[in-house]
Simulated scan of single mutants.
Amino acid sequence: MNRDLSQIRKDFIKDELHAAELNSSPFLQFKEWLNEAIDKGEHEPTAMTLCTVNTEGIPSARVVLLKKLEEESGFWFFTNYSSKKGLELEENKNAAVNFFWAGMERQVRITGVVEKVSPKESDEYFYSRPEDSQLSAITSPQSQVIESRQQLEDWYEEAKQKEIKRPDNWGGYALIPTEMEFWQGRSGRLHDRIRYRWINSNWQKERLAP
C-alpha cells in the first residue's frame, strides 16, 4: 500500500531551550539530558548513531551504544576493530554521533576525533559483559561476508568450548568532541538549537537557526 509520507508530521510542544540556562560545560549538560532520558524511560537512551567516512568521502552510519562518558576522555563505545566502522576510523579519525530521544523531543549532535582506548580499559569492559556477548565478539568476523547463519552458529558453539579471551581486534574507542549541539523540538518547526564549540581551549555557546 502506498502512503503519502509528506503528510506524516508531528508538532513539538514539550519544552524550550534557553542558552543562559544551559550548563557552561556541554558534558555536564549532556549528562543532565541523558539522566533525564533514562529516568523518563526513553527507549534505548544510550543508543547513538555513529557516522564514519572512508578515504573516498563516502559516509556510513549505524547505531552503537554509549558505554562511558567522561569530560577528559569523551564518549566511549566498543566494537570490532576489523569491522567497517573500525577500518574507516583507522583511515579517518573524524566522526560524529547523534542521540535522539523522541519522547522528550530532543536530540544531541556531536562531532569530534576518535581514539582507541587502552587494552586494559578494553579488557575491563569486555569481561564485564554477559558471557554470550563475549562469545559473540569472539565469534563474529564483523562486516565480512559469511556463508550462512549456520556457519555463524557453528563458530559460536566452537567458541563455547574454548577459554574466553578478548580478541586483539575488539575493543573501545573514545570520541573527543570539538562540537556539541543540543536540539529541542518546538512548535511550528521553530526549533531551539544551541551549539557548543571548542575554541581557544574553551567551550563557546551560540544559537543556531532551526
Rank of each mutant, 00 (worst) to 15 (best):
M1I: 12
R3T: 14
R3H: 14
D4K: 12
D4V: 11
D4S: 11
L5V: 11
S6T: 15
D11M: 08
K14P: 02
E16G: 09
A19Y: 02
A20M: 04
L28I: 10
F30V: 02
E32H: 13
L34M: 13
A37C: 09
A37V: 08
H43V: 14
T46M: 10
A47F: 05
T49R: 08
V53N: 04
T55I: 12
E56H: 13
A61Q: 15
R62G: 07
V64T: 14
L65N: 12
L66I: 06
L66K: 06
K68C: 08
K68I: 00
L69E: 06
E70K: 13
F75I: 07
K85I: 00
L87N: 14
E88Q: 15
E90A: 14
F99A: 03
M104G: 10
R106A: 08
R109M: 13
V113D: 07
V113W: 04
K116E: 10
S122L: 04
D123T: 02
E124Y: 00
Y125G: 03
S128I: 02
R129A: 02
P130H: 05
A137Q: 05
I138A: 02
T139M: 02
S140G: 11
P141R: 12
E147I: 00
R149A: 01
R149I: 00
L152G: 00
L152I: 00
Y156Q: 09
E157D: 14
E158R: 12
A159K: 15
R166K: 15
P167M: 08
P167I: 09
D168W: 03
D168T: 13
N169Y: 15
G171K: 06
G171T: 10
G172T: 08
E181K: 08
F182S: 09
R186F: 06
R186T: 04
S187P: 00
G188F: 06
H191R: 05
D192I: 04
D192Y: 05
Y196I: 09
R197F: 01
W198A: 05
S201Q: 15
S201G: 00
L208Y: 04
A209M: 12
